[in-house]
């Protein structure tokens, strides 16, 4: 018999209570139970970073987290980054402007990782940006556009905070 637990997880501000198998990964909980397919799954062993979400505001690989470990915690996925359905976050807009994505597979993990970086460090150096996304594999872009997007978004967010 499958071992299950009833868990309550707040995802992008909305509380969800579900009975889940204890072996269920958080990535699969988000994708299959909550149908939030923005969180991508590349490797399922912690190498590619595509599945990165924020748990209590801190980036984490959702494929290296059991859904039961998120019980009672707050999760933010890439779906939670934009301020509303019609508006992009500065980071998302900058990714579009700077060609920071091609196939988009890595993008959710890059966005969540950079979201944490810019919140903790609004004025990162290029090296700090590269270091932050060192755990995110992108097979398409060569990273140049992603780094430019992060620096551009950081600058716009600082300007926004001042105005």
């Amino acid at each position: 018999m499958t071992d299950t637990r009833k868990i309550t997880v707040t995802v992008n501000g909305k509380s969800h209570t579900k009975e889940v198998p204890t072996r269920l990964l958080l990535s699969d909980f988000l994708r299959h139970e909550l149908l939030l397919t923005g969180t991508h799954v590349g490797c399922e062993h912690g190498v590619c970073g595509a599945c990165t979400v924020l748990i209590d505001g801190r980036s984490a690989r959702s494929c290296l987290t059991l859904a039961v470990q998120a019980n009672g915690h707050e999760v933010m996925t890439v779906e939670g980054i934009a301020p509303n359905a019609d508006e992009l976050h500065h980071l998302q807009q900058a990714m579009q402007d700077h060609h920071g994505l091609q196939c988009g597979y890595c993008t959710p993990g890059i966005l969540t990782t950079l979201f944490e970086l810019l919140r903790d460090n609004p004025d990162p150096s290029e090296h700090e940006v590269r270091s932050a996304i060192s755990g995110n594999l992108c097979r398409c872009t060569g990273y140049q556009g992603i780094v430019e997007a992060a620096l551009d978004a950081a600058q716009k967010m600082r300007a926004g905070a001042r105005s």
């Binding site: 990165t52 748990i55 801190r58 984490a60 290296l64 755990g135």
Partner: peptide
């Protein structure tokens, strides 16, 4: 040690 995402946990 690893990356920020893994050090967080």
């Amino acid at each position: 040690v690893g990356h920020r995402q893994t050090r967080n946990r």
